[in-house]
Design a binder for these strands. Sequence first.
DNA 1: GGGGTGACGCGTC
DNA 2: CGACGCGCCACCC
Length: 118
Amino acid sequence: MGQFTEDKRTLSSFDRIYDVVRQIPRGTVATYGQVASLAGNRRWARVVGFALHVNPDPEGIPCYRVVNRSGQVSSAFAFGGGNRQIELLEADGIPCPDGIVDLAKYQWKRATVDYLPE
DNA sequence: GGGGTGACGCGTC
DNA sequence: CGACGCGCCACCC
């Protein structure tokens, strides 16, 4: 992890984001806003996208498990060519018809909530 | 120090 | 529902 630690300031924010993404368990997904919130600031949703864009460790950081608020995967070729993200998600056992993940069922919850907080 | 951009989110129309 | 606009924060020039 010393290859990308040239700019500590960048890691201050990005590191938290990467750390959160790394914690996303297999078989679940998280939204940008969720990652941002867990990282410390909910308004980093946009920053999260940028952070994943410069993902220093695609193998350790499952950026494909991050989808937008609608549950839609990045239609962008950010993953190297189209529906690569979808394939990875399905490989995790997450069906994503039309590139849409059912957040109601597969959204990551840090802890099993006993009751839904509304 | 200023301006433009982005793998987003949310309220409104 | 979908489209539009504003806000938010970090990054690059």
